[in-house]
């Protein structure tokens, strides 16, 4: 069965100033739409403050969108606040966090971390059935010998091993979608690929991933599709190869030119004006990149065009490509 998690026109505002007569808001995510499919990965690439983690939290129901809808197989996920509905949703959509040192409870064993989600979501299982399942899961994420690992405490594991426990925990409840928020950025270089490859194997088994990263090279390595975000806006998205090899939005071009590449010697070509990343509010208009863009026109200050398909499945939001008047 192929499930379908769909995000339509989602915006998220946060309160930043609150006085008696006025409240001001920050718009962290602005009218974002995308789909997650099982057995595939979508990478969300952007700098800090681009709203990529916020959108993951909204998908986890940690935040409720200010506008727009999130649907799972056609069902609006925020329509019911009932505990049972939340539990059903949590069973299908799980999150892995950046910091494997903070996401496990130091006073509980690995067995405890895996037993709880299994028990909550499968209340009918017997103790020995749960135990078999825990050992199976640990084997599956490469933490053999499973029996020994299950009795360990988080401090006895390395960062990479802890991140494997986090993945096992997401699998424990039978997640169809895993939202991975920078899952490898805090790990040692030599073990990052092990985690990415494990996630690749899970993907082959039919799990859908949202892979949030600032590293566009790993996005291309792991994800079929890549979306580039800037200040809460999706500015370019499509097949990962198309986006990375043929970037069209000036921001994507800047991002890709900034990625260090050992084979290239230093170049001093300017890809953008210096400038600060703007703060977006619900009243802001235009393209968020206009202030730094080398191609910006007067129109960019007031108008943010809709998506234009520049290659099959490859969309850009930029006046340079917009055909609309």
């Amino acid at each position: 069965m192929s499930a379908h998690l769909s995000v339509r026109d989602v915006s998220l505002d946060f309160t930043i100033g609150d006085t008696l007569f006025s409240t001001s808001y920050l718009r962290a995510v602005n009218r974002v739409s995308f789909d997650l499919k099982t057995g595939q990965a979508l990478a969300i690439v952007g700098e800090s403050g681009s709203g990529k983690s916020t959108i993951a939290r909204a998908l986890c129901r940690l935040y409720t969108p200010t506008q727009g809808t999130i649907t799972l197989d056609g069902q609006d996920v925020n329509s019911s606040q009932a505990l049972s509905a939340q539990r059903d949703y949590a069973q299908k959509v799980q999150m892995i966090f950046q910091d494997p040192f903070g996401s496990l409870n130091p006073v509980h064993t690995i067995r405890h971390h895996l037993r709880r989600p299994i028990k909550i979501h499968n209340p009918t299982l017997s103790v020995s059935e749960i135990d078999t399942k825990i050992l199976e899961l640990l084997d599956r994420v490469g933490l053999a010998p499973a029996e020994q690992t299950a009795n360990k405490y988080p401090y006895e594991l390395s960062g990479g091993q802890r991140q494997r426990v986090a993945i096992a925990r997401a699998l424990a409840v039978g997640a169809q979608f895993i939202l991975a928020d920078e899952p490898i950025s805090m790990l040692d270089v030599s073990i990052r690929l092990g985690i990415l490859n494990l996630m690749e194997d899970m993907k082959q088994e039919g799990i859908g991933f949202m892979y949030i990263t600032h590293d566009i090279a790993t996005a291309r390595y792991f994800a079929e599709r890549t979306a580039v975000m800037y200040v809460g806006h999706m500015v370019e998205w499509g097949e990962s190869d198309s986006v990375t090899q043929n970037p069209q939005h000036p921001y994507t071009q800047l991002l890709i030119s900034a990625v260090p590449q050992a084979e290239r010697r230093r170049s001093t070509e300017t890809k953008a004006k210096k400038g600060d990343i703007p703060m977006w509010t619900p009243q802001s208009t235009g393209c968020p990149f206009a202030g730094r863009c080398l191609h910006a026109t007067a129109k960019c200050e007031t108008h943010m065009p809709g998506p234009t398909e520049i290659a099959p499945g490859h969309f850009v939001r930029c006046v340079l490509f917009s055909t609309a008047p």
Binding site: S158, G160, Q161, D188, V189, S190, I191, R192, L193, G194, N197, E200, I216, A217, T218, R220, Y221, D241, T244, Q245, I256, V259, Q261
Partner: peptide, 22 residues
């Protein structure tokens, strides 16, 4: 270590990193 970094351009092959931990 060199093959632990996926490249932005060039062929896409499965990389294996380094097994084990420091």
């Amino acid at each position: 270590l060199v093959s632990s970094f996926p490249t932005l351009h060039g062929p896409k092959t499965r990389l294996d990193g380094i097994p084990g931990h420091p």
